[in-house]
Amino acid sequence: MGLNTLNSKYFCLYCDCDSSARWNINLKWKINKNTQSKKKPELFPAIRQENYIPDELHLLLRISDVLMECLFNDLFKKKDFERLIKSQIEQAMKFINVHFEFFKSKFHSEKWDWTSLMGPDKKKVLQHFPVTNFVSGKCGKNIQELWRNFYDLYMIIRRLSLTDSEIDDLEVKVKEWIYLFCRLNQRQINSSSQTPGLYRKEDVTPYMATCMSFHNIVFLNSYEI
Rank of each mutant, 00 (worst) to 15 (best):
S19F: 10
S20G: 01
N26S: 14
L27N: 15
K28C: 08
W29F: 15
I31M: 14
Q36Y: 05
Q36F: 05
S37W: 01
P41C: 12
E42A: 14
E42G: 01
L43F: 10
L43Q: 10
F44V: 11
A46K: 14
R48K: 15
E50C: 07
E50F: 08
N51V: 00
N51G: 01
P54D: 05
D55S: 09
E56K: 08
L59C: 08
L61P: 00
L61G: 01
L61R: 06
R62F: 11
R62N: 13
S64L: 05
L67D: 02
L67K: 02
M68A: 06
E69Y: 09
C70K: 14
L71G: 02
F72P: 00
N73H: 13
N73C: 09
N73V: 09
N73D: 12
D74Y: 10
L75F: 10
L75A: 10
F76G: 02
K77W: 03
K79S: 15
K79E: 15
K79Y: 03
D80F: 04
E82T: 14
E82L: 07
R83H: 07
L84N: 14
L84H: 07
I85M: 08
I85E: 04
I85H: 06
I85Y: 04
K86L: 15
Q88T: 02
Q91T: 11
A92G: 03
F95T: 11
F95K: 15
F95L: 10
I96L: 11
I96E: 02
N97C: 06
N97P: 00
V98Y: 02
V98Q: 02
V98H: 02
V98R: 01
H99F: 06
H99C: 03
H99Y: 08
E101R: 14
E101S: 12
F102N: 06
F102P: 10
S105R: 06
S105M: 04
S105A: 07
K106Y: 08
F107Q: 11
F107P: 00
E110D: 14
D113F: 03
S116I: 13
L117I: 08
M118C: 05
G119V: 04
P120Y: 05
D121Q: 10
K123M: 12
V125L: 15
L126I: 08
L126M: 09
L126Y: 07
Q127F: 09
Q127C: 07
H128P: 00
F129K: 00
V131N: 03
T132S: 14
T132Y: 03
N133K: 14
V135C: 08
S136C: 06
K138S: 12
K138L: 13
C139P: 00
K141H: 11
I143G: 01
Q144L: 04
Q144F: 03
Q144W: 03
E145D: 10
L146Q: 02
W147T: 03
W147N: 05
N149W: 01
N149H: 12
Y151G: 01
